[in-house]
């Protein structure tokens, strides 16, 4: 899932404060699931922006709508934004982009898109994938070194690991985890295989995907 987070109110207000009628559009897929873009967050943001706007002397009117997925034009077609002069999207970057591409009025992002992640209990997510285009999870027992290691190292822990914790102090060392998991799976020999540097040309050219899926373009 795409994990998102609300931007600071000031930043949002700078974008929408100059408009008079703004429609907040939530997204009931990833953004809702990461507790930042569902109906409740839309309602809360409307209240917050209204309060903030009135304190700054802006006169902005806000209303709400929820789309099932903002990254699908067919869902966006159902959105009636007539009479509004701007849209504030509570979707991920793809949502904002799709809404903006399908609209004749300015579309602003209310959220920052953080990562592709997994849920870790309520209101907690972990980055799992960086969409690099060349997956090595098979060699690392499902722990992505590109994502989970702060430096994206592909060949083992750096010298910064302290008691199994990353030198940034905010996460366990991915390579210690990979080592443990390889060991528990009896695959510790794989740790010794040197992984070559990533082929970054794959992600550099991934925009080709917006045209075809191989074999489907006959």
């Amino acid at each position: 899932m795409i994990v998102v987070r609300r931007k600071p109110i000031d930043e949002i207000l700078k974008m929408v404060g100059r408009h008079t009628r703004v429609m907040l559009v939530g997204c009931n897929t990833c953004a809702a699931v990461s507790l930042a873009g569902g109906q409740k967050e839309v309602d809360t943001l409307i209240e917050l922006l209204s309060l903030a706007a009135s304190r700054k002397g802006f006169s902005v009117e806000f209303s709400d709508a929820i789309l099932e997925r903002q990254c699908e034009p067919e869902f966006i077609e159902k959105l009636d934004s007539q009479g509004y002069d701007a849209i504030l999207s509570l979707g991920c970057g793809a949502g904002v982009a799709t809404l903006a591409g399908d609209n004749d009025k300015p579309v602003y992002p209310a959220l920052d898109t953080l990562f592709i992640g997994s849920a870790q209990g309520f209101a907690s997510w972990q980055a799992e994938c960086s969409a690099c285009g060349s997956c090595v999870l098979g060699e690392t027992c499902g722990i992505c070194p590109t994502t989970r290691c702060a430096k994206g190292i592909l060949n083992g822990p750096c010298g910064g690991v302290k008691d199994g914790t990353c030198e940034l102090g905010d996460r366990p060392c991915a390579w210690v985890e990979i080592y443990d998991r390889l060991e528990s799976l009896g695959r510790i020999d794989d740790f010794g295989k040197t992984m070559p540097a990533k082929d970054n040309s794959i992600s550099a050219r991934c925009c080709e995907w917006d045209m075809t899926k191989e074999g489907d373009d006959s």
């Binding site: 009931n28 809702a32 507790l35 930042a36 569902g38 109906q39 409740k40 967050e41 309602d43």
Partner: peptide, 11 residues
């Protein structure tokens, strides 16, 4: 009411 409070969709 814990679930209602946690529900992002007000569902």
């Amino acid at each position: 009411g814990t679930c209602a409070s946690a529900c992002p969709g007000s569902a």
